[in-house]
C-alpha cells in the first residue's frame, strides 16, 4: 500500500502549530488532573473495582439447591480448556457414586490450575450440567504453585450454590411415578 504524503503548508512545515496544539492538549490534561483532581486510574488495594454483572472471573464448581455436587465428571471442560488448566480424575467403576440420586457419576477429584486458567469461559459454556461458572473473583494469589491448583473441595466451597433445573431429580421423580419395572409376570 502506498500512502500519499500530504502536502504541508509553510506553517505546518514549521511544526510550530503542531507544537502549540501539543502543548495545549498536554496542559489541558495536566491542569485537569493537577488542579481539579480528576483522574482515570484507581488506587487499587484501597479502592476495589466494582465487578460488573457477567464478568468472567475465576471458574468455580457450584452445588445445586439441595447442596449436592452438580458435576458428573463428563470431562468436557477438561477437553475444551484451551490452556489445559482443568484436570478431572473420574470415579472409575468402583468409585463413590454421585451425591445426586440417579446421576451415577461424580468426579473423584477436580482440579483447576489457576495459574494456567485464562478465564475464557469455555468450561462454563460447554458444561451440560451447569456445574461450573466463571464467578467474580479476579485477584487470585498464592504463595506457591501448588497453592494455586484449586481442588474440588476448594472449588465447591468458593463456588456456592446455583439453583437450576434438577435434571436427574426430575428423571427420578418421573420414574417413581411409573409402575414398577420390570413388570413381574
Amino acid at each position: 500500500m502506498i500512502v500519499k504524503r500530504a502536502n504541508l503548508s509553510f506553517w505546518e512545515r514549521l511544526y510550530l502549530p503542531a507544537l502549540l496544539s501539543g502543548l495545549q492538549v498536554t496542559w489541558r490534561h495536566f491542569s485537569r488532573t493537577f488542579f481539579a483532581g480528576k483522574k482515570v486510574t484507581m488506587e487499587y488495594p484501597e479502592q476495589k473495582w466494582v465487578v460488573p454483572e457477567g464478568y468472567r472471573g475465576a471458574p468455580y464448581l457450584v452445588r445445586d439447591q439441595s447442596g449436592d455436587t452438580k458435576c458428573v465428571s463428563c470431562q468436557l471442560c477438561e477437553f475444551v480448556c484451551p490452556p489445559k488448566a482443568i484436570k478431572i480424575i473420574p470415579p472409575g467403576s468402583s468409585g463413590k457414586p454421585a451425591e445426586r440420586a440417579n446421576a451415577e457419576k461424580m468426579p473423584a477429584e477436580f482440579e483447576i490450575n489457576m495459574l494456567r486458567c485464562i478465564f475464557c469461559g469455555f468450561c462454563q459454556e460447554v458444561c451440560p450440567e451447569e456445574a461450573i461458572f466463571l464467578q467474580r473473583d479476579y485477584s487470585l494469589t498464592g504463595l506457591s504453585r501448588g497453592e494455586m491448583i484449586y481442588d474440588k473441595e476448594k472449588l465447591l466451597a468458593l463456588g456456592g450454590t446455583h439453583a437450576g433445573v434438577q435434571k436427574w431429580k426430575h428423571k427420578l421423580d418421573e420414574a417413581k411415578e411409573q409402575e414398577t419395572f420390570p413388570v413381574k409376570g
Binding site: 465428571s73 463428563c74 470431562q75 477438561e78 473420574p90 470415579p91 472409575g92 467403576s93 468409585g95 457419576k105
Partner: peptide, 12 residues
C-alpha cells in the same frame, strides 16, 4: 465394560 466404566472419556 465394568473395567473401563467411568475410567476415562473416550475422546482423550
Amino acid at each position: 465394560s465394568k473395567d473401563f466404566r467411568f475410567q476415562m472419556r473416550v475422546w482423550f
